Amino acid sequence: MSDLFKKELLFKILVVGDFGVGKTSIIKRYAEGTFSPKYKMTIGADFALKQLDWDSETRINIQLWDIAGHERFGYLTSVYYRYAVAAAIVFDLTRPDTFFAVAKWLADLRDKVSLPVGRPLPVIILANKGDVAANKVPPQIEEFCKKNHITSWYVTSAKENRNIDEAMNRVVVEVLENQRNNNLYNSDSVMLAEEMHTDKHNNGQLCCSR
């Protein structure tokens, strides 16, 4: 752990949604600052790392897990979801059917993963491809979020880098609020960060072993 920071945390954040909604594009934009109109189809799951110097005492390492859209409700999602502390559900504004799938993804998340004290994961919704269809936001999204206790949703565009940082920062804020208010996953998060730091020095790469 760096001497510059008193705390170094690792948060696993899931990015889920139907096939082709832009999950990989959002993750690449946030983690690497890049965008490509073409990405290979995600098979199973993949992840990227984003490091945030959150304040003068805290460094946060975020593992963004890209869950393939074809994995919905498959037995492997329980494995992929393990140790997650938050999630973003993505749908495509140009494909209305992907919004209706959000409810199924949310139910799958809440059925298979929760915080240590049984509280549900913090979840945000990303209405992606806002650069071409910002006027097609489903009118029922506000009611859906209220009914399902989702505090935030954003119109995003990975292509134009619209609301990506803002949305992910909101997720981190909710995770930290849970940590402060409920003393959740504190020791695990620090331990995971230390393991990651050790793996970087020993192997020259990140090894996710949990």
Rank of each mutant, 00 (worst) to 15 (best):
M1S: 10
S2V: 10
D3H: 12
D3T: 12
F5Q: 12
K6E: 15
E8P: 03
L10I: 11
F11L: 03
L14P: 02
G17H: 05
G20M: 04
V21H: 01
G22H: 05
K23F: 10
T24R: 05
S25F: 05
S25Q: 03
S25M: 07
I26S: 11
K28M: 03
R29D: 00
R29K: 02
S36Y: 01
S36K: 15
K38V: 10
Y39D: 14
K40R: 13
M41K: 07
M41V: 01
G44C: 09
D46F: 10
D46Y: 12
K50G: 06
Q51E: 09
L52E: 13
D53T: 06
D53H: 10
D53S: 07
D55C: 02
T58N: 08
R59C: 15
I60T: 07
N61C: 13
N61E: 09
N61A: 12
I62P: 09
Q63S: 09
L64K: 00
W65A: 04
D66R: 06
I67Y: 02
G69H: 07
E71G: 04
E71R: 14
R72Y: 02
Y75N: 14
Y75W: 14
T77W: 13
T77K: 13
S78Y: 11
V79E: 11
Y81T: 10
R82E: 14
A84K: 11
V85H: 11
A86F: 01
A88H: 09
V90R: 11
F91S: 09
F91K: 05
D92H: 13
T94Q: 14
T94H: 11
D97K: 15
T98D: 12
T98K: 04
V102P: 05
A103M: 13
A107R: 15
L109F: 02
L109H: 01
D111L: 07
G118E: 02
R119N: 01
R119L: 06
R119K: 15
P120E: 07
I125F: 04
N128Y: 04
N128L: 01
N128G: 07
N135W: 10
V137E: 01
V137C: 03
P139H: 06
P139W: 00
I141M: 12
E143G: 04
F144P: 09
F144A: 00
K147Q: 06
N148A: 05
T151Q: 12
T151W: 03
S152V: 02
S152N: 12
S157V: 13
A158G: 07
K159V: 07
K159H: 07
N161G: 00
R162E: 14
N163D: 13
E166R: 11
E166W: 08
N169P: 02
R170Y: 09
R170Q: 11
V172R: 04
E174G: 10
V175E: 05
V175M: 02
E177R: 11
Q179L: 14
N182L: 03
N183Y: 05
Y185T: 04
S187Y: 04
S189Y: 00
V190E: 15
V190I: 06
M191N: 08
L192H: 00
A193W: 01
E194S: 11
E195W: 04
H197L: 02
H197R: 07
T198Q: 09
T198A: 11
H201I: 05
N202W: 15
N203S: 09
N203Q: 03
G204D: 12
Q205W: 03
Q205S: 07
L206G: 07
C208W: 08
